[in-house]
Amino acid sequence: MTQTLNGAALLQAWQDLLASGAKLRQRDAAEKLGVSEAELVAVMPGSCRLKSDWTGLLGRFHQLGEVMALTRNDAAVHEKVGQYGELKGSAEVGLTLGVIDLRIFFSHWYCAFALTEPKGEGEQHSLQFFDRHGEAVHKVFQRAGSDAVAWQALVDEFTEFDGEALQFEPVVAKAGETPDESIDVAGFQQGWKDLTDTHQFFGLTRRFEVSRRQALRFAPEGFTWRVGADALDRVLRTAAERSLPIMVFVGNRGMIQIHSGPVQRIEPMGPWINVLDPGFNLHLRQDAIAEAWVVRKPTDDGIVSSLELLDGEGGIIATLFGERKPGQPELEGWRALLDELPQELSHAA
């Protein structure tokens, strides 16, 4: 996305939009103005650019007390309330464990801002992180239970006073898929059967140069099958009725955020299906689900099953599992729930 307005003009255009009475979320307002979300945040009153010291910044998040962590993509928003655990991992890939459970891919992080906005009779404070395309990878919102002193100390320490001018890049169209006839299907299927950990799956798709959608189509017989786009609604409602704890993964280029535990209040609203629970909210556009698949992968702990939701370009909107820890077998109730979903296509290879 290319900004056609200078900072002053963009700020004026945004203020005119607000004055018109339009009630748009920050992301939607940026789209309406023809700029990236990061470009809009950069000119907003109350915005302060932060240093791109990702491990330094996130390494302090456990001091902030109770906050709300938000990760989203084009079709899903994942909100989790709690306290960050200590940052682990490396400068390339980090993670936090606990209530706020994250897998962080720092190579896609580009810039960050602390933002203070009016909200009701008070203020809303947030930390917002963006990739090179100006798209949000992660946001953190202060709450009543946050440590406001630690928050301000973090902002003061990491404020960027002399950083280079930000240069955003347009999103590049995804490369085309490998032609089906060029794929070593037998080798790929054997590699699938030889998996011992779900984290090996990404490496398997790269080794055989298959897209996610091709991987699901070319899986060994009995390891994947398509289900209806209403599968998410069925799974969430059934999990709530049976008090079945699940895991909900939502991510983008720079972050994956995970909820582990039960879900209770499932509410539709227009095209959105929502989980509205204390401590966890999920908002997902059901009309963006182009394909839904049940997927089974072998591991050292036995078969692990998931529901994968893909968009029209074959990208992952969200993935759901039964709640489990490494070393534990899959919940029988979760596997049974997936088996109850009506199948649309048993195997499309």
Results as ranks from 00 to 15, higher is better:
10 L>Y: 05
119 K>W: 10
147 D>V: 06
281 N>R: 14
73 N>H: 11
144 A>I: 11
347 H>N: 10
89 G>F: 00
64 L>T: 05
22 A>V: 01
265 R>K: 15
338 L>S: 04
57 L>F: 00
132 R>M: 09
77 V>R: 11
273 I>W: 00
10 L>S: 10
246 I>C: 00
58 L>R: 08
331 L>Y: 14
169 E>T: 15
182 S>H: 12
327 G>H: 07
231 A>P: 07
311 D>K: 12
179 P>V: 04
257 Q>R: 00
175 A>T: 09
290 A>E: 00
132 R>S: 15
224 T>C: 10
264 Q>T: 15
128 Q>R: 14
117 E>C: 06
220 P>V: 03
191 G>H: 14
186 A>P: 03
317 I>F: 00
28 D>N: 06
334 W>H: 15
255 M>W: 00
196 T>G: 11
4 T>V: 15
249 F>Y: 05
34 G>D: 09
68 M>G: 03
43 V>Y: 01
179 P>M: 04
231 A>V: 03
102 L>P: 02
184 D>A: 02
84 Y>R: 02
217 R>V: 03
15 Q>C: 07
20 S>Q: 05
44 M>K: 12
31 E>N: 13
243 S>F: 03
154 L>N: 01
19 A>W: 01
319 T>L: 06
120 G>K: 11
219 A>N: 11
297 K>H: 08
118 P>H: 11
68 M>E: 14
115 L>S: 09
231 A>S: 13
32 K>H: 12
123 E>V: 08
337 L>G: 08
150 A>P: 05
286 Q>C: 02
47 S>Q: 11
75 A>N: 12
65 G>R: 08
186 A>S: 07
42 A>T: 12
323 E>G: 02
173 A>S: 07
79 E>K: 10
30 A>K: 05
153 A>M: 06
251 G>V: 01
299 T>N: 10
234 R>T: 13
346 S>Q: 12
145 G>Q: 09
227 V>S: 08
206 R>V: 09
82 G>M: 00
179 P>T: 07
127 L>I: 03
213 R>V: 05
124 Q>N: 11
303 I>Q: 15
276 L>C: 04
257 Q>N: 01
